[in-house]
Design a protein around this nucleic acid. Structure first.
Lengths: 343, 343
DNA sequence: TTGAAAGCGCTAACAT
DNA sequence: ATGTTAGCGCTTTCAA
């Protein structure tokens, strides 16, 4: 490969001068600089990554880790939209992004996903969550003093930064919107407590509080369906609820877009029609770029911006060599759609 | 950070012995090995990436480059499914994967996406195609002697390997399947010639040849609709065709799954019903994991396996330090579905 | 079986 | 303004 020495030989200077030109240092005669630059261009030289790393201790690479398997359509929509922002920010800063799959906390997968940290192969980590950070990862981060930003699930650690959306407010606001559309009995599709995370439970709390504040004449808790996140059988739970309830709700607020098609199916199988008899509202914002046959009212998270913000926080912490907790919470935008019927 | 020296001090040996233990060299006394291993475990030592790279010239990192923007649902399904296989193979081999966006050939984006190559930050490249490899990338690869495998679009270069599916055969076979379902007038939804690639044109050639061989009583070329790849307006072209044709086909073979929902809409707007009056068949295999409301007959590409194969070819070439062209073509599986009606 | 020395490509600190 | 020296963490000689 082409090294500083090669360039130096061609330009007839010492290699350190080449280093100076590369790093834009001031004390180089304009003429020398030009000579060196010409040699660089001619040879197609770029500073060797390894040499730079060894010296500076920085490798200009971050890891984007996620427990989301790459082939789960709905979840990866989240990941991909976040990635758009991360990638853009990386590109601007000439940082590369290693994409890796982290095991789900609690599962016992036997590969060392922390190897890049231990090897000092990355300067920092963005964890695209939905599940909690594994304990061992936290301790590794602390040990190596690696900054880390989590997107999508509130991290406990005081050393880990957090980028997310205002889920409680979004949940609250969504119910208000549905109420304003004339619905007086609104249900919620949530998750089983075991697969709960802070975000989902925040949306649920928002749902409950809003109905209290709006003066609903029923207990919102009794209209919560708890189900799986990404299962083909979710519709069964929905159907079951609608055949059991005496006063079925006229609108369902699904805690995630991925549940909307399943909810629609369950409602249909219970003999009701969507959206004529039961309205549906989702959460996430990418259902409408899938091929679902109904335009869905949903809550759009600014995912790409969140990715961007996460990268900015991380890069900053890398430069400053700090790992203090920073938090950035984004607002969610309610997006109306045909699935929400005015009554 | 923890270095070989630290381990050596703790274990009371020279740092070179630590290196030997790390690399599993034979000439180390069992007792020494144990002592060193204990020190390694205690300190959580892992060999510094930079040091290793500087020496070996290998960085155990590959780049996965693609001109596919991360937020284009249908195209990223392709990318993601391929990534599953790549990631798995990387993990097994303790290789990391830098994910990057390559500019589309011809566009003038002004960032240096080849920087990681120039810096010798990666040992090889997997290019997830659908578009041709940019010229400058080819010459950079040749210059740096970096092995490269392309998935999804036949590369011209004799130095670049190729993993793909048998598109001509798949196109041919699909028409046969539709014919066997009783259809005697079969159309094709293809792309405008400007956005053509080898794969799409192979599918089209297969379509034409099959109808010739089966003895169709019309010119298949006259039932080809040329349209955009990922546009919301595709349905207009379909509708237009169906309102123009005197003898509209009873089945349409779409060259990509992403066109199927648009085709369905176009046909509906032309006053015909899918699949009762017009059957639809797609190509790719992920439409059925989207939320399209019809189970679609399509052609499934073994994408994850292709990703795996590409990684294997690449890793092998990295080890052998060769860049000879290897080719692996996978068969496509026809998958029946409700969108194909027997007549 | 173990260790010492040299060098991979680069830059910071110190000459000149 | 330019060059020399040393050292980052590691492995490959070569020596003991």
């Amino acid at each position: 490969m082409v090294t500083q020495k090669d360039v130096a030989n061609l330009a007839g200077v010492s290699f350190i001068t080449v280093s100076r030109v590369i790093n834009g240092e001031p004390n180089v005669k304009e003429e020398t600089r030009k000579k060196v630059q010409a040699a660089i261009d001619q040879l197609g030289y770029a500073p060797s990554f390894a040499g730079q790393v060894l010296n500076s201790g920085r490798c200009n690479t971050i890891a984007v880790l996620t427990p989301i398997p790459f082939d789960q359509t709905m979840r990866t929509s989240y990941l991909l939209n976040v990635l758009v922002g991360i990638e853009e920010t990386c590109r601007k800063n000439e940082i590369d992004m290693i994409l890796g799959v982290a095991p789900i906390a609690g599962s016992n997968q036997n590969y060392d996903y922390l190897r890049p940290f231990k090897q000092k192969k990355v300067d920092g980590i963005i964890y695209v969550g939905l599940k909690e950070l594994p304990e061992e990862m936290l301790s590794e981060l602390a040990k190596r003093k690696l900054p880390c930003v989590v997107i999508g699930d509130r991290p406990e650690s005081s050393l880990v930064s957090w980028v997310d959306t205002a889920n409680y407010e979004a949940g609250y606001n969504t119910v208000k919107k549905i109420w304003e559309a004339g619905h007086r009995r609104i249900g919620f599709v949530g998750l089983h407590r075991e697969i709960y995370n802070a975000n989902i439970s925040d949306r649920e709390r928002g749902y409950i509080q809003a109905l209290h504040d709006l003066g609903a004449d029923y207990k919102p808790e009794e209209y919560i369906i708890r189900t799986e996140f990404e299962s083909k059988d979710v519709y069964k739970d929905i159907k079951n609820a609608f055949t059991t309830w005496k006063n079925p709700p006229t609108a369902l607020f699904c805690c995630a877009d991925s549940l909307v098609p399943q909810a629609a199916r369950g409602i249909n199988e219970a003999g009701l029609s969507v959206p004529d008899q039961v309205s549906l509202v989702g959460f996430d914002g990418f259902i409408n770029s899938s091929y679902f046959n109904l335009n869905v009212a949903t809550n759009v998270q600014p995912l790409s911006k969140m990715g961007q913000k996460a990268a900015e926080i991380l890069f900053n912490q890398i430069s400053e060599a700090t790992t203090t907790k920073e938090t950035a919470i984004f607002n969610v935008t309610f997006q109306d759609g045909d699935s929400l019927r005015k009554i």
